[in-house]
């Protein structure tokens, strides 16, 4: 039982990060129906910038929390700038082009950002300075660290703040109006370009926070870290219903938990020695070894994409439904 709770905690932390990244995908998709495949790279840039700052300040004697906050404070403007530049240079000129065109530029931007990061921060795996003193807390036999608690709480805070922004402010109203019908929203006096740019900027800012979280949680950063994270967050967005803000949050958390539980239990349930009686060959092999695991925990990454396929086959509009239906 405590193993199960531990896996839930692991999954929840992972899911919280996925959720924040997924928000970036879903907000952009909700407004301009573009899957911004470069979003994962923005997360990576956030982690890299934070790494540089934290590394520089690690020996300065500042309290660790302040160092991480300064790191985040530097990562956010850089990522917002990257997000804005991306929209301005690669997507806005293609606003009226067929939908495939911006999708391809998105992949191009992703490759450019990755290679730029490689040039700036090298191909090596960068080790985040271990400045935070990790404390363990016990919950029903499972452990949770102070970093995990901060990650989960920050994610909840961000989700609440974002929901308030979308549903309670003028900018949020403008965003929803643009999502429903850009032409009409424009006629009502909304500056669509500004709204779209703001959406990209907010998504990129969230990505920066996620990047810092991933970096401090795992302690490493590399120029390739954004691609798989981005794909999983995209899966989370689709799982919740792409374009749907609460959906992205739910999708992220569900995906994180599915992954943690899947990786934790797949080996146990695909151990062929449990049914070793069915063939002589198997009996013999299990007598030698005791375990004959068909799928091990290295299939962890497969779960996210198996979920993606299942959702697309059985419920293409996601758990909470797509927001595209709003468009006439």
């Amino acid at each position: 039982m405590d193993t199960f709770i531990q896996q839930l905690i692991n999954g929840l932390t992972l899911g919280a990060v996925y959720a924040i990244v997924a928000l970036g995908y879903t907000m952009v998709y909700g407004i301009i129906q573009l899957i911004n495949f470069a979003h994962g790279e923005v997360v990576m840039i956030g982690a890299m910038v934070a790494f540089t700052v934290i590394n520089a300040l690690a020996g300065s004697g500042l309290p660790p929390l302040a160092v991480v906050l300064i790191g985040t404070g530097c990562a956010i403007p850089v990522c917002v700038l990257v997000g804005y530049a991306m929209e301005r240079l690669a997507y806005r000129p293609l606003r009226r082009a067929p939908r495939l065109a911006p999708l391809i530029t998105a992949i191009g931007v992703s490759i450019i950002l990755q290679n730029l990061a490689m040039l700036v921060w090298s191909r090596n795996i960068l080790a985040f300075p271990q400045i935070i003193d990790i404390k363990l807390y016990n919950i029903a036999g499972a452990t949770i660290t102070n970093v995990q608690i901060v990650i989960i709480l920050t994610c909840i805070l961000i989700m609440v703040a974002l929901a308030a922004l979308v549903y309670r402010t003028r900018l949020g109203t403008a965003m929803r109006a643009t999502a429903q019908n850009p032409q009409v929203a424009g006629l009502m006096g909304i500056d669509i370009n500004r709204v779209i740019a703001a959406t990209f900027a907010i998504g990129a800012g969230l990505a920066a926070v996620a990047g810092v979280m991933v970096g401090t949680y795992y302690g490493i950063a590399q120029y390739t870290m954004g691609s798989i994270l981005g794909l999983k967050a995209f899966t989370a967005a689709v799982l919740g219903g792409i374009g749907n803000v609460p959906g992205a949050m739910l999708g992220g958390v569900v995906l994180g938990i599915v992954e943690a539980l899947g990786a934790g239990y797949i080996g146990t349930y695909t151990d062929l020695c449990k049914i070793s009686g069915i063939s002589d060959w198997l009996t013999q092999r299990c007598a030698n070894d005791g375990h004959f695991v068909l799928f091990g925990s290295n299939y962890q990454d497969v779960f996210a994409f198996a979920v993606l396929i299942m959702v697309l086959v059985f419920r293409p509009s996601g758990l909470l439904g797509e927001r595209v239906g709003d468009r006439a």
Partner: peptide, 10 residues
């Protein structure tokens, strides 16, 4: 692999 938590928990 960067996330070993699932394996380690098991």
């Amino acid at each position: 692999t960067t996330d070993w938590k699932a394996v380690l928990t098991k």
